[in-house]
Nucleic acid binder design. Structure first.
Lengths: 157, 157
DNA sequence: GGCATATAGTTGTTTAAGCAACTATATAAA
DNA sequence: TTTATATAGTTGCTTAAACAACTATATGCC
């Protein structure tokens, strides 16, 4: 038990996530200024498809730490915007493979640039060493809590 | 410019806020198990009223980093649950002062205990030194981005 | 083959975020 | 006092999160 004596009230920001909210808002604002008309949540799905196109909705759930209904509706909205298309898997007809459209592929460079710019604004005055430690802490928190957290109504445990 | 050469892609979690999402989900789960039937967002409003009762909605906006419509609706829902009441200010009739009810006062001890327990689960294996640095980073990020971010449609800058 | 169970995805409902537009009150300027 | 402006809060609308309940397909076992 290395740390059950920290000042608990001060850690409130870990729960409210003010910093990540602020980053998300700023990124949304930067998208808007650049006339990129997608939400941060939609962008986060595209982000994983840019890394690897043709993921199933289930894989997108795991990648984006969202549950299945959330991904269903994000994919619904991305389809309406003609940024992705669902393709039923030949091998397993339960599975929808999600593919980027040409329009979505063209968004990658611009929006990644905006994301990097946003992170630079956010991390102004923070050293690389501090960033490394913050990342480790956030990863540890995530690992500590990420058991059976995804996928509403599926995992029985 | 101390840090424009970090590995940008890896910082994705700063935007998505996986860790704070995970903490919020776990706290909600812990509330549910203890039969505490409020949302984390409602709790975050009560949290500030426990520190100081009788805040205006505007003060709650600033304290919780939410915009005015969000606080209007959270207070609406807290009023429906009979946890707070709106009292018009005598000096300035534009202002609603928000006061805790007896029921809400009785929730403080139990839910703060659940919040501390949740933070202990989340921070298992993280040292106090690491926590301090992570807090500094998150605070700096917040400070870097928190200009005119609150209060939709009011602040012109 | 037939049945139980697991997996992939969808739909319904409630709560909340974010933004624009709005009302009402207060303050400052003329 | 009238007018302009700022502040406090509300309402409408769209998007999304969380959870439960559901459908459809696949897999394993008999």
């Amino acid at each position: 038990m290395p740390n059950n004596q920290f000042k608990k009230g001060e850690l409130y920001s870990f729960i409210t996530g003010k910093a990540s909210t602020a980053i998300a808002r700023r990124l949304q604002k930067n998208f808007k200024q650049a006339n990129v008309d997608i939400t941060i949540e939609q962008w986060s799905v595209l982000y994983h498809l840019w890394k690897q196109d043709g993921l199933s909705q289930q894989q997108l759930c795991e990648a984006t730490f969202r549950d299945k209904p959330s991904i269903t509706r994000l994919v619904d909205n991305l389809e309406k915007l003609q940024l992705v298309k669902r393709v039923a898997s030949k091998n397993d007809r339960r599975i929808n493979m999600i593919y980027l459209t040409k329009e979505a592929q063209e968004l990658q460079e611009q929006t990644m640039e905006l994301a990097n710019q946003t992170l630079n604004e956010a991390l102004e005055g923070v050293t690389n060493g501090q960033i490394e430690i913050a990342k480790e802490v956030l990863q540890q928190v995530y690992d500590n809590l990420a058991q059976g957290n995804n996928n509403s109504s599926s995992s029985p445990l």
